Amino acid sequence: MELNFHRHRRLRSTENMRALVRENHLRVEDFIYPLFIIEGENIVNEVKSMPGVFQISLDKLEAEMDEIVSLGIKSILLFGVPLEKDELGQGAYHNHGLVQEATRLVKGKYPEIIVVADTCLCEYTSHGHCGVIEGEKVLNDPSLQLLVQTAVSQAKAGADIIAPSNMMDGFVAAIRKGLDEEGFEDIPIMSYAVKYASSFYGPFRDAADSTPQFGDRKAYQMDPANRLEALREAESDVMEGADFLMVKPGLPYLDIVRDVKNHFNLPIVIYNVSGEYSMVKAAALNGWIDEQKVVMEMLTGMKRAGADLIITYFAKDVARWLKEY
């Protein structure tokens, strides 16, 4: 009996053959490494729910950056963890705030490093929400004014990219206008365009001390059940002047990454968030999985889904593993 079928296994026969036809690759240049800058001195606090991730004070940042640079990582994302908070989150837009001072330090010593500044208020507000509140309601338009001030102060400090993560309506338009009016027309905006009200953010809230003191963020972050809404959100940000589009979280939303990639011609960023990181770390520490293999497969899946860039707490680990190949 004559059979007629395709022999797909011909291209899987050896490691070199598989490498020859491999469609997606991880590069150290793909990664953006988040850093948590805490107020104080001589502080290197491991986040209990995120093994291997630390809150560091400004005086410890240079040593951390030396390691990051030595690994070939070229981009970082800065978060501030202040000791004092207030209702309006003034530390976010203070000219000598934590992110601003960390930016100056990094750009002064490592000018080639891309500094992405997280532009939000939740780490700085006493109530833990991403904007101005009235009662228990987060007000959209008054929040935009503070976000613009934050973005401008970060740009003045030397940030290469402004990354607003608040999910207020019109935040890209407001920040773009504010940056342009201050002479920062060339500073791009990496919009958290598609940010879901996810249960995967818990460990981050430990690291950034940003847990809401009342309610939740479901009135401004997206419903995890929605898909078409993601395209509406992304389209609005494109029209308002975004330069990058981000999908957050990563693993549960790979379909959304592909949708956004298929519809828009901007660089697509995925955030491999804290909950995803902590689950892998916990399983690895218990000996249930091979951490390196799982992480490489997970991040490659994010690239395959359409992500051009990956924000990940695994960046240093993966940079080391890539050097071994």
Rank of each mutant, 00 (worst) to 15 (best):
S153K: 07
S153Y: 00
S153C: 04
S153A: 15
S153L: 00
S153H: 01
S153E: 13
S153G: 05
Q154E: 15
A155C: 09
A155D: 06
A155V: 02
A155K: 03
K156Q: 11
A157G: 10
A157N: 10
A157C: 03
A157S: 11
A157T: 09
A157K: 14
G158Q: 01
G158A: 12
G158P: 01
A159Q: 11
A159V: 03
A159C: 07
D160P: 01
D160Q: 02
D160C: 09
I161S: 11
I161D: 01
I161R: 09
I161Q: 11
I161L: 08
I161K: 10
I162E: 02
I162L: 07
I162S: 06
I162Q: 12
A163F: 05
A163L: 06
A163Y: 04
A163Q: 06
A163S: 15
A163C: 09
P164E: 03
P164H: 10
P164A: 14
P164G: 07
P164W: 03
P164C: 06
S165C: 10
S165F: 06
S165Q: 04
S165L: 05
S165I: 00
N166A: 13
N166T: 13
N166F: 01
N166E: 14
N166Y: 10
N166D: 14
M167L: 05
M167D: 02
M167G: 08
M168S: 14
M168C: 06
M168N: 05
M168Y: 08
M168H: 15
D169L: 02
D169Q: 08
G170A: 05
G170F: 03
F171Q: 15
F171E: 13
V172W: 06
V172G: 06
A173H: 12
A173N: 13
A173T: 01
A174M: 04
A174E: 04
A174W: 04
A174Y: 01
A174V: 00
I175M: 02
I175S: 12
I175G: 11
I175A: 07
I175Q: 09
R176A: 01
K177L: 05
K177T: 13
G178I: 07
G178P: 00
G178D: 03
L179S: 07
L179Q: 02
L179H: 15
L179W: 05
L179F: 05
D180K: 13
D180G: 06
D180T: 13
E181T: 11
E181G: 14
E181A: 14
E181Q: 15
E182F: 07
E182S: 14
E182G: 08
E182V: 05
E182N: 15
G183T: 06
G183H: 07
G183V: 03
F184E: 00
F184D: 07
F184H: 13
F184P: 03
F184M: 10
F184C: 09
F184R: 08
F184S: 05
E185R: 15
E185M: 10
E185D: 08
E185V: 10
D186S: 15
D186N: 12
D186L: 04
D186T: 07
D186W: 02
D186R: 13
D186G: 06
D186K: 15
I187V: 13
I187F: 10
I187Q: 08
I187W: 06
I187Y: 02
P188N: 10
P188V: 13
P188A: 13
I189T: 12
I189Q: 09
I189F: 14
M190N: 09
M190S: 15
M190G: 10
S191P: 01
S191V: 09
S191E: 00
S191G: 11
S191F: 00
S191I: 04
S191L: 01
S191K: 10
S191M: 09
